[in-house]
Amino acid sequence: MATLNMIVNGKEASVEVGAGDLLAHVLRDKLGLIGTKISCGEGECGACTVLVDGLSVTSCIYPALKAQGREVTTIEGLPQEGQLHPIQQAFIDVTAPQCGYCIPGMILSAKALLDENPHPTREEINEGISGNLCRCTGYYQIVEAIELAAERMAEKGGAR
């Protein structure tokens, strides 16, 4: 066992983990952050996407200890002062979630994209979520939600 110290959603977290523990399991089982979903467990679907120092990673194949000293953002960390993040709000407003299982991962991929590129084209949005599978929606409303969020964030002066 080793001690993993990281900043999770802005707060320091310290957990005992095994050398082979994967970040997704640590977040879910040790920190109770169940918004990180596991679907394939092999990097193929993006349901477990979280941000590590702002970069999107598939936490189901990401050794937890790699997050030592890093900042980890999960879906639970997006709302600010009780307010949903504009991407989350846009997902609601365009009826993007169906079953919702892929949605946290989608939203985090979208966040990574918009943080890097606040005015993406549709093609860039597609590229940005191309590592996230969804079986329910056909992706259209998800892409539209990201477009809407980008517009709204631009109006607000790039609020994150």
Partner: peptide, 21 residues
């Protein structure tokens, strides 16, 4: 009307519990 789905808010927050949760 395209009213918001009842479960949308908890799904975008990641707080909606699925069986594994």
């Amino acid at each position: 009307q395209s009213v918001p789905k009842k479960d949308a808010a908890t799904k975008v927050r990641g707080s909606r519990k699925f069986p594994q949760d």
